[in-house]
């Protein structure tokens, strides 16, 4: 039987160290990181080109913020699985992100195990 096609992930965060942390920490078989973006505009450009299955999305970013970017990428590919990775820890922000179509929420700061668990849940790889 042919191997299943790997799922693809785009990382969106305005912080270099967080993008690198996610890149280094993801350890899930069958999940390939295909790109990173440092703001909402770059995220939408790369998303349109790469059409990833999943996105980790920061919320507080200069220019187009994460909530707006969630709406923009889901308008391009509605079945994209979005994991919000944000320091904004209040309930109403999480509710708004879910309302816009995000499927998971991981609070910063996170450790490697929390990230991989959140991505595994997002991708329903249990």
């Amino acid at each position: 039987m042919p191997e299943p096609k790997p799922l693809t992930l785009l990382i969106v965060d305005d912080s270099h160290i967080i993008r690198r942390r996610i890149e280094r920490s993801v350890a899930i078989d069958g999940l390939d990181i295909v790109g990173t973006a440092a703001d909402g505009d770059e995220a939408v450009r790369k998303f349109r080109k790469l059409l990833p299955d999943a996105v980790t999305m920061d919320l507080t970013m200069p220019g187009m913020d994460g909530l707006q970017t969630i709406s923009a990428v889901l308008a391009i590919r509605p079945d994209t699985r979005i994991l919000v990775v944000s320091a904004l820890a209040d309930r109403s922000t999480a509710i708004e992100a879910i309302r816009r179509g995000a499927r998971g929420f991981l609070y910063k700061p996170f450790d490697d195990a929390q990230l991989n668990e959140a991505l595994t849940e997002l991708l329903e790889l249990h």
């Binding site: 305005d14 320091a87 820890a89 209040d90 922000t93 910063k108």
Partner: peptide
């Protein structure tokens, strides 16, 4: 500079858990 900004953003953002979404923070 990236790290120092990220730490400030995280500590202020986390405070919204207790202080609520009306504790509005900049980038």
């Amino acid at each position: 500079l990236d790290v120092v900004g990220e730490i400030a953003n995280t500590l202020a953002g986390n405070a919204r858990r207790e202080l609520g979404s009306d504790f509005m923070i900049s980038v």
